[in-house]
Design a protein around this nucleic acid. Structure first.
Length: 497
RNA sequence: GCCCCCAUCGUCUAGUGGCCUAGGACACCACCCUUUCAAGGUGGCGGCACGGGUUCGAAUCCCGUUGGGGGUGCCA
């Protein structure tokens, strides 16, 4: 009872102080701090989006910091990938809210200096135990020691820097309360936190301190990151305190998971933003979808303008539980965004898939005018832009590749050959317009008591090579009489053989 | 093992004590439309993990159980 009351009083007074400080002194400074270890992760994209939106809302700043400190996994090629992917999502390096990129590796000296300052103040100490030594001690002590893993063996041994010595933070007694904008107050008993490493035995700083020192030097006021960092928060908050700085406002957002409910991982799951982009997911669709994971705009519609999201998003209303990254739903969002485009926009968006090396046809065979004619018919039929070429390729190839299953299905009926032959005869002299072509086929249908839906199947396979696709007669008109009849003959010949 | 977080349809969510016989979206099913396939329209299936409290009243508050997840590196 008393404890609770005290906590409330303390926290409310602290909150007032923070608000007063924030109002007077500083514009909010958010940051996104990825490490360049591979393609850009969709989880990272969501975290970046959160920070970006928050910066936009508050007239604040979005700082991009590349955490490239050592480690064999880092590679400069990924840095450009991150920057490009962010720009694709509208997090544009030239925007006034954007600052950076900064490179953590450039600040190594500052990290070391901060660590040495902590040593000088007795807030950190050197230790000469190896990882093996620590494991051995833990095993020998049998029962789990108070502190996990490392037991504080060198706390009072008065060691200085030297070969094989790591610098460890002296975790003080007591409790550390992390005030989290998503989760409220999370309390950690310091006795459960080991004296963690600040400087490796080779003298290089580790993430825990490098990250904090950069945040301090870059004036970061708000740390919004994935929940996997929650256990780091008390440690980092202790470093902020030890360094004499006021810790930032924390927010730990739930992780994205796969169908097994495990955190999305680069090894196991399809997570690369670049890959989705290449498949033809639209940036707006991805942004919108990502923002519906763990949060939702007001109203009964999830697909909303980005501005509405910027207007409404709040950390306090972010869900506390992990969200499944559902590719099927994202594609459905994408399809809706595709349909919402004007035809011209759609044509422009398809450009990359229709020309250049990705196109399945020879450049000379492609006719932009023909595609423009059929574009409205394919626009309602694709989920991914990469699906477009296979829907229209029959228009730009000499002869379509006949899908065997479609062929067998369409020509299994005994009427298939004869009616197709009749259609061929009808096509020889009719007016070459979609409506007239349709009329020819319909008439033959009447004569044979076959519905158009059935009767057109063999014709469709002959012309397009497949049993499904856009409406048939418009493309046939575009193809022209000679090419159409040639294709019918080819498929008829195939039947005979 | 230990620390921490979490728990509404299969999935993503709305819901902040009465408006909830729980709303929307994706997926799925049926029907309508129809030139195949889509799109569109209509309808359907389907959920507050469990057990105790608190309260006139609980999906909403508290406790416990169970079940998930994250962390436990001289990675970030």
């Amino acid at each position: 009872m008393f404890a609770t009351a005290t906590t409330i009083v303390l926290s409310s007074s602290t909150t007032h102080t923070e608000i007063a400080l924030g109002q007077m002194a500083q514009t909010p400074r958010y940051r996104f701090a990825p490490s360049p270890t591979g393609y850009f992760h969709v989880g990272g994209a969501r975290t970046a989006l959160y920070n970006w939106i928050l910066a936009l809302q508050t007239s604040g700043v979005f700082v991009l910091r590349i955490e490239d400190t050592d480690d064999s996994r880092n590679n400069p090629q990924w840095t450009q990938g991150i920057i490009d992917a962010l720009a694709w999502l509208g997090i544009d390096g030239s925007d006034s809210h954007f600052e950076g990129p900064y490179f953590q590796s450039a600040n190594a000296a500052l990290h070391v200096a901060a660590a040495e300052k902590l040593f000088a103040q007795g807030k950190a100490y050197y230790c000469d135990l190896t990882t093996e030594d620590i494991q051995k001690r833990a095993k020998e002590s049998g029962k789990q020691s108070e502190r996990q893993g490392y037991d504080g063996y060198s706390r009072d041994r008065g060691l200085g820097p030297g070969p094989g010595h790591v610098l460890r933070f002296r975790v003080p007694q007591g409790k550390t309360v992390v005030k989290d904008q998503v989760r409220g107050e999370v309390e950690f008993d310091n006795s459960t936190i080991e004296d963690f490493v600040l400087l490796r035995s080779n003298g290089s700083p580790v993430f825990l301190i490098a990250n904090v020192v950069d945040d301090i030097n870059q004036g970061i006021t708000h740390v919004v990151r994935a929940e996997e960092h929650l256990p780091n928060a008390p440690k980092q908050q202790m470093i902020w305190d030890a360094l004499g700085s006021t810790p930032p406002s924390w927010a730990h957002v739930p992780v994205l998971v796969n169908e097994q409910r495990k955190k999305l991982s680069k090894r196991r799951d399809k997570v690369a933003v670049e890959q989705y982009r290449e498949e033809g997911i639209l940036a707006d669709a991805m942004k919108n979808y990502l923002m519906t994971l763990g949060w939702a705009p007001t109203g009964d519609t999830e697909i909303v303008p980005f501005q509405k999201i910027v207007d409404e998003f709040a950390l306090g209303s972010v869900n506390h539980s992990p969200a499944f990254f559902d590719i099927v739903k994202m594609q459905s969002f994408n399809a809706e965004y595709i349909r919402a485009m004007t035809v011209d926009e759609f044509i422009a968006a398809c450009e990359v898939w229709l020309t250049g090396e990705r196109a399945p046809w020879k450049q000379a065979d492609y006719d932009a005018k023909v595609f423009a004619e059929i574009a409205p018919l394919v626009q309602t039929r694709v989920q991914l832009l990469q699906d477009v070429p296979s829907m229209v390729d029959f228009l730009f190839c000499e002869m379509p590749a006949i899908d065997e299953a479609s062929y067998v299905k369409a020509f299994s009926a005994d009427w298939a050959g004869p009616t197709l032959l009749a259609i061929r005869e009808g096509f020889k002299n009719c007016e070459w317009k979609a409506d007239s072509l349709k009329a020819v086929v319909e008439k033959i249908g009447e004569e044979n008591s076959l519905k158009l839906g059935k009767l057109q199947a063999p014709l469709r396979v002959a012309v397009t090579g497949r049993s499904v696709g856009p409406p048939l007669f418009e493309p046939i008109e575009l193809l022209g009489r000679d090419a159409t009849i040639k294709r019918i003959d080819a498929v008829l010949a195939k039947k005979v053989s």
